[in-house]
Amino acid sequence: MFITPHFTLAEMTASSTAALAGLDNTPPPAALANLGLLCGVLEHVRSLLQVPLTITSGFRSQALNQKVGGTPQSAHVLGLAADFTALNIPARQVAIRIRDSDIMFDQLILEFDSWVHLAVSTEQPRRQVLTIQRGGGYLPGVH
């Protein structure tokens, strides 16, 4: 089932961790609605970058989020966040291009210089930009 022209429910809920642990990762109705908002923003990111995105983590059930060590208040649990990479564009460049665009996001995190975490909000987005490095905490901005 396509949520938007380029993103499916299957890719937004896929998890090898959930499959191996036998965890149900089916989003409840509210999270499914939020995935529509999230995928709409991801369509804008895809258009900005002009390349396909690979979703590495989208919706996470509470059990899956706990299993992968996510924070209890993770936007992934609400269907409001995705981690992704972009075909042939380094993650840092992806984060910078999104940061410098007019795309409305709540939180943009360059994670370990390897992938981008993008969260959206049903309220006024903060446009918070952070970087997380191995062995360290979050740093403001992307440089």
Results as ranks from 00 to 15, higher is better:
80 L>E: 02
84 F>I: 04
29 P>D: 15
4 T>N: 02
105 F>A: 08
133 Q>I: 13
23 L>S: 07
55 I>D: 11
70 G>D: 10
35 L>G: 03
55 I>W: 12
16 S>V: 11
109 I>P: 05
70 G>Y: 04
2 F>H: 14
25 N>Q: 12
28 P>L: 12
52 P>F: 07
47 S>L: 14
18 A>G: 04
46 R>A: 08
71 T>N: 12
123 E>K: 08
112 F>T: 12
58 G>N: 00
111 E>L: 15
58 G>C: 00
120 V>W: 01
15 S>C: 10
71 T>Q: 14
13 T>Q: 09
32 L>C: 01
116 V>G: 08
33 A>N: 10
121 S>V: 01
88 N>K: 14
12 M>R: 09
79 G>H: 00
96 I>P: 00
141 G>Y: 09
88 N>P: 02
14 A>T: 04
118 L>A: 01
76 H>K: 08
76 H>A: 06
134 R>C: 04
13 T>Y: 05
38 L>I: 12
135 G>V: 06
114 S>R: 15
29 P>F: 09
93 Q>N: 04
31 A>Y: 05
112 F>E: 14
108 L>S: 11
63 A>I: 02
116 V>W: 11
16 S>N: 13
75 A>Y: 14
52 P>L: 12
116 V>Q: 07
86 A>G: 03
21 A>F: 04
60 R>H: 13
79 G>D: 00
84 F>K: 00
95 A>D: 05
113 D>N: 15
141 G>R: 06
109 I>S: 08
102 D>G: 11
70 G>N: 09
25 N>T: 07
63 A>L: 07
143 H>W: 10
69 G>I: 01
64 L>M: 04
15 S>G: 06
40 G>L: 08
9 L>P: 02
107 Q>F: 07
59 F>T: 03
50 Q>H: 15
115 W>T: 07
131 T>L: 03
89 I>R: 02
139 L>A: 15
125 P>A: 02
52 P>S: 13
103 I>D: 05
62 Q>M: 02
38 L>Y: 09
77 V>D: 03
71 T>M: 13
131 T>Q: 05
36 G>V: 03
99 R>E: 09
66 Q>E: 14
83 D>A: 02
15 S>V: 08
87 L>K: 13
89 I>M: 02
89 I>P: 03
32 L>H: 06
45 V>K: 04
120 V>F: 06
49 L>S: 01
36 G>N: 00
21 A>P: 01
18 A>S: 07
76 H>L: 14
40 G>S: 07
59 F>S: 08
74 S>H: 10
